[in-house]
Design a binder for these strands. Sequence first.
DNA 1: GCCAACGTTGGC
DNA 2: GCCAACGTTGGC
Length: 144
Amino acid sequence: MAYWLFKSEPDAFSWDQLKSKGEKGQEWDGVRNYAARNNMRAMKIGDKGFFYHSNEGREIVGIAEVSALAHPDSTADNPTWECVDIRAVADIPKPIDLDAIKADPRLAEMILVKNSRLSVQPVTDEEYIYICKLCGLDDPPRSP
DNA sequence: GCCAACGTTGGC
DNA sequence: GCCAACGTTGGC
């Protein structure tokens, strides 16, 4: 069981855009960072992850799930770059912003706080459940 | 809009 | 294989 966090600038690709893709979801292309790629390689079908808006908003706005395992990034000219597909699963009733995450001692170890530049990050089970609760999701969608 | 932090590139 | 230079990200 694993949980993740996907970052996107809403100007480039927003949570609403992901929702509009429906069941099919969206290839999470464009990632050119080895740590982020390795995280995607480790993902399994049905794994859940937060969808975070960077730059503008700076808050967790939704929960997505992996709909296709890592495969070559169709936008890359180099086969080393791979990505998964994700689709929207649930809205966040009460989005939590970066200030609130930073202010919470239970979330101080999040990669979002410690390495804000990593675009695809792991989230611990504890962080996932705790954040969901703060956000008004008492019975959050679980990874398989 | 600025700038710090980070990751990647490329020269040696 | 090291490391300086550069480009990019993202918070502020």
